[in-house]
C-alpha cells in the first residue's frame, strides 16, 4: 500500500519520561518483537480492541513497535450495544488521535432479534453478542492473525496458552494439541482458513500492567477513576444507573456517590466499587491497601481467604 503522507520527521513523542526499569523494558521488548513478527509473517493481521486497560497497553505497544510508521493493521471492536458511552467516546478519540483504522462490528442477528442481557440472560447474550460477533468479524475480514491482550497469569487455564495460539478454520482451540514454542522462534505457518491469536502480553502480570500504564502515562477510560455516578445496589452489585435503558426494579433506589470500575465491559454486567480514587496514583494505592488487608486476612486465619473473596463479591468493600 503506497504511503502518501509527507516524509517522516523523527521527533520525540515523550521527551521527559524517565527510562523504564529493566523489568518493564524486557516485557516491552518481548511484546514489540511479537508485534513485528506477526505483522511480517501474516497477510491480514488485526487487533482485538476492547477499550479496557489491557487493550490500552496493547495499543501503546503496537504504536511503539511500528514507530515511526503507523500501526499497520486495523483494530476491531466488538460492540454489543451495551457498552458504557464513555468507552465509545474514548475509543473514537483514541482512533482519531493515533490515526488508527477502527472497525466496529455488531452482530446483526443479535440486533434483529433484540438480544439483551436483561431479557435473554447473560450466557446467551454473551454467546451471541460477543463470541458469535467476534467470529463474524474475523471471518468478514479474513484475518489470519488476531492480537489479543490475554495474560497467562489471568487464570489457571491460560497458563499453558502459547504466544501464537493456533485456531482451526471454525476458530476452535485444542489445548491438547498446541504447537510447542521454543525460544522466541514462533511458527506462523498456517493453511488457508486457519488463523492464530497472538498474545504479546502473555508474560505480563496485572501489577506489570498497572506499573506500565503509570510509567508510560497511558490514557485510560475515565470510568477507571472515581467520580460521582448514579447507581443501584442489585444482588450485591453496584449497577450503573445512568443509561436511558436502565430500569430500576421495585424497591430499588437510585443512589449517587463516588464509585469507579475495575474492569470495563457491558454496563449491565459490570459491577462498580465504592471508591474515591480519582487518578492513577490513587487507584494503585487503593489496590495496595486491599493487598495488605488481604495478606493480614490470610495471616490471621488462612481459611478466611475464601470468605474475604465472597465479601468482596458481595460488594462490602
Amino acid at each position: 500500500m503506497p504511503d502518501t503522507r509527507p516524509d517522516v520527521e523523527l521527533k520525540n513523542p515523550a521527551p521527559s519520561k524517565p527510562p523504564l526499569d529493566p523489568h518493564l523494558k524486557a516485557l516491552e521488548n518481548e511484546a514489540i518483537h511479537i508485534f513485528r513478527e506477526v505483522a511480517a509473517e501474516f497477510e491480514r493481521p488485526v487487533m482485538l480492541y476492547s477499550i479496557g486497560k489491557d487493550s490500552s497497553v496493547l495499543l501503546h505497544l503496537a504504536r511503539k513497535a511500528f514507530y515511526p510508521g503507523r500501526v499497520p493493521f486495523p483494530l476491531v471492536h466488538i460492540n454489543t450495544g451495551w457498552k458504557f458511552p464513555e468507552m465509545i467516546d474514548f475509543r473514537d478519540e483514541t482512533a482519531k488521535r493515533y490515526d488508527l483504522d477502527l472497525i466496529e462490528h455488531r452482530n446483526p442477528r443479535g440486533v434483529a432479534e433484540n438480544i439483551t442481557p436483561f431479557t435473554h440472560g447473560s450466557a446467551l447474550y454473551t454467546d451471541i453478542m460477543k463470541t458469535e460477533a467476534l467470529r463474524q468479524a474475523l471471518d468478514a475480514g479474513q484475518y489470519d492473525a488476531a492480537f489479543g491482550g490475554a495474560r497467562r497469569d489471568e487464570e489457571a487455564s491460560r497458563a499453558k496458552e502459547r504466544i501464537y495460539s493456533f485456531r482451526t478454520p471454525d476458530h476452535k482451540w485444542d489445548p491438547r494439541n498446541q504447537r510447542p514454542e521454543l525460544w522466541n522462534v514462533y511458527n506462523g505457518m498456517i493453511r488457508k482458513g486457519e488463523s492464530v491469536r497472538a498474545f504479546p502480553l502473555s508474560n505480563w502480570t496485572e501489577v506489570d500492567i498497572w506499573r506500565y500504564i503509570q510509567a508510560e502515562d497511558i490514557p485510560l477510560v475515565p470510568l477507571y477513576y472515581a467520580k460521582k455516578r448514579k447507581f443501584v445496589e442489585r444482588d450485591g452489585m453496584l449497577l450503573w444507573a445512568e443509561d436511558p435503558r436502565f430500569e430500576a426494579l421495585p424497591g430499588e433506589q437510585v443512589q449517587e456517590d463516588y464509585i469507579r470500575f475495575r474492569t470495563l465491559g457491558c454496563w449491565p454486567l459490570t459491577g462498580a466499587i465504592r471508591s474515591t480514587a480519582s487518578n492513577l496514583e490513587e487507584v494503585i494505592a487503593e489496590l495496595e491497601i486491599a493487598t495488605v488487608s488481604e495478606r493480614q486476612g490470610r495471616a490471621i486465619d488462612r481459611d478466611q481467604a475464601g470468605s474475604m473473596e465472597k465479601k468482596k463479591r458481595e460488594g462490602y468493600f
Binding site: 454473551t126 498497572w210 452489585m237 475495575r262 474492569t263 454486567l269 495496595e288 486491599a290 495478606r295 473473596e309
Partner: peptide
C-alpha cells in the same frame, strides 16, 4: 452473570 463477571474484578495485583 454479574457475580461471575465480578470474580475477575477481584483478582487484585498484590
Amino acid at each position: 452473570a454479574a457475580l461471575a463477571a465480578s470474580a475477575t474484578v477481584t483478582s487484585l495485583p498484590h
